[in-house]
Amino acid sequence: MKFVFLYLVIVNYIAFSLFHLDKERAIKGKRRISEKNLLSVVAFGGTLGAWIGMNKYRHKTKKMSFKLWFYGILIVQLLFFFAFYKRKFFI
């Protein structure tokens, strides 16, 4: 369980940092981090860090296609979490 917690801390820190970096690059007109890469980090568990980064830096908050993918991933993650929790709780 400690490994899972440590993993989630690291992946959420990476997600937060990537949103910050991408926002800085957008402001400076430099090469950006692809939405595919940002969403991949979200899918691997960085949802909270990404959400905090999105809101803190006001990045990707108005792009509807990105938000649909983001919240779709969040819903799938929540479904898996509750399915796992319920299964573990009742066994």
Rank of each mutant, 00 (worst) to 15 (best):
G29V: 12
L39F: 10
L18I: 08
L39N: 05
S17C: 06
K63V: 12
N37E: 01
R58T: 13
M54G: 02
F5L: 15
G49H: 08
F66C: 07
R31F: 01
Y7S: 05
Y57K: 09
K62Q: 15
I73K: 03
F84M: 13
A50W: 08
F3S: 09
K86P: 00
F3M: 09
L68S: 02
T47N: 02
Y85L: 14
F19V: 08
L6D: 07
D22M: 11
K30S: 02
I27R: 14
Y71M: 05
F44E: 01
S34C: 01
N55R: 12
Y7Q: 11
K63A: 10
K28M: 12
V11H: 05
A15H: 03
N37R: 12
I14A: 03
G49L: 07
V9C: 14
G49C: 06
M54D: 02
V4I: 13
V9D: 00
L78H: 01
L18A: 09
H59D: 07
I33C: 05
R25N: 08
V11R: 09
L18V: 10
I75A: 13
K36H: 06
F19E: 09
K62G: 14
E35C: 06
I27L: 15
K56A: 13
Q77N: 13
V9N: 01
Y85R: 13
F89C: 06
K63H: 13
V9P: 06
G29A: 13
G29Y: 09
K56V: 15
Y13W: 06
L38V: 01
A26G: 03
M64K: 14
K88H: 12
K36G: 02
Y13S: 15
A15M: 04
G29R: 09
A43H: 02
K56S: 04
V11F: 03
F3C: 04
A15K: 07
S40K: 01
L38E: 00
